[in-house]
C-alpha cells in the first residue's frame, strides 16, 4: 500500500497577520512557516500505519514555490520516504487540486487536512477526490487499513460514525486522527537530507476564484468589567445592554 500525504505550508499559528500592497497580499516578512497542523497529524497517522505493517511507502506532496522546501524537508525528517514539490504558487483550491491530481494517481490512500490554517479553504481534498474520481470521506477522526479497504471514524453533524470504504480513498482528516504530532529527531533530520525531493513542473490549470483584498477585524471596544462580588450583574448586562439573553 502506498500513502500520499498532502502538505500545506502555512504561517506558524501564532503569527501576527499583516497585509501589504494596499491590503492585497499577505505580508510574509519574518514569518515562520510550518506544516499545516492537520497535515502534520495526517503524516503522524501515516507513520503509525506504516509501523503497524502493510504500508510500503509514504510520499508527501506540496504545490508551492521553492520557499516551501524546508517544510517538505521537515516532513521527510518526521519520516516520509520521499517528497514531491509541484513548482507553482498555490493560487486557489482548484488550481492546487488540479496540480496534485497529476501526481496522486497510483496511491491507495491520500490524506488531506480538513483545512489549511492560512486561507481556510476546506476544499483541496474533496476537489482532488472528484478530479481523480476516487472515494472520499471527510471529517475523518480515525483510520485503519482492512485488506483493500479502510475502516474509518468520521464526525457527522450531531454525532459520529464508523464506516468501511474501499480504496483508492481520499481521507480528509480532522481532530482525533492522531494524538500528538511527531517532531523530527536528530537522526531523522540527518536522513531527510538524503531522501528524494522531486520537483515537478505545473500543468495548465486556471484558478476559479481570486482574492481581491483583505481586512483586519476592527479594533475591539474595551472589555466591560464586573466585580467578582457582583457577578450576577453580568446576567443583567447580557439581558438589558447586549440584548442577547
Amino acid at each position: 500500500m502506498k500513502i500520499l500525504v498532502l502538505i500545506s505550508n502555512v504561517p506558524d499559528t501564532t503569527t501576527k497577520i499583516r497585509f501589504t500592497g494596499d491590503n492585497t497580499s499577505f505580508d510574509d516578512a519574518g514569518v515562520q512557516w510550518i506544516i499545516n497542523p492537520w497535515d502534520e497529524l495526517a503524516l503522524t497517522r501515516a507513520m503509525e500505519l506504516k509501523e503497524a505493517g502493510g504500508v510500503d511507502t509514504i510520499t508527501v506532496a506540496n504545490v508551492g514555490e521553492k520557499s516551501t522546501e524546508p517544510t517538505l524537508r521537515k516532513a521527510l525528517a518526521v519520516g516520509a520516504d520521499d517528497a514531491i514539490r509541484i513548482d507553482a504558487p498555490a493560487k486557489d483550491a482548484f488550481f492546487v487540486a488540479a496540480q496534485l491530481a497529476e501526481v496522486a494517481k497510483g496511491y491507495d490512500l491520500i490524506l488531506a487536512g480538513i483545512e489549511a490554517s492560512d486561507y481556510n479553504g476546506n476544499a483541496v481534498g474533496g476537489m482532488l477526490a472528484e478530479i481523480l474520481d476516487f472515494n472520499s470521506v471527510s471529517a475523518v477522526s480515525g483510520i485503519n487499513i482492512e485488506g483493500d479497504s479502510f475502516k474509518v471514524n468520521r464526525e457527522i453533524d450531531g454525532g459520529s460514525q464508523v464506516l468501511t470504504i474501499s480504496g483508492p480513498l481520499v481521507a480528509i482528516v480532522q481532530k482525533g486522527i492522531a494524538k500528538e504530532p511527531r517532531i523530527p529527531a536528530m537522526r531523522g533530520i540527518m536522513m531527510a537530507r538524503k531522501k528524494p525531493l522531486v520537483v515537478a513542473p505545473p500543468v495548465d490549470a486556471h484558478e476559479k476564484t481570486q482574492f481581491v483584498n483583505f481586512e483586519l477585524p476592527p479594533p475591539k471596544a474595551a472589555c466591560k468589567m464586573v466585580d467578582e462580588e457582583n457577578a450576577k450583574e453580568i446576567i443583567t448586562l447580557l439581558h438589558e445592554e447586549a440584548k442577547v439573553l
Partner: peptide, 21 residues
C-alpha cells in the same frame, strides 16, 4: 461537516469556483 465534504466535489463537476465559510 457535510457541506465541507460535498461542496468541493460538486464544484469540480460544475466547473464552478468554490468559496467556503
Amino acid at each position: 461537516n457535510l457541506g465541507k465534504a460535498i461542496a468541493p466535489r460538486v464544484s469540480v463537476v460544475l466547473q464552478a469556483g468554490l468559496v467556503g465559510g
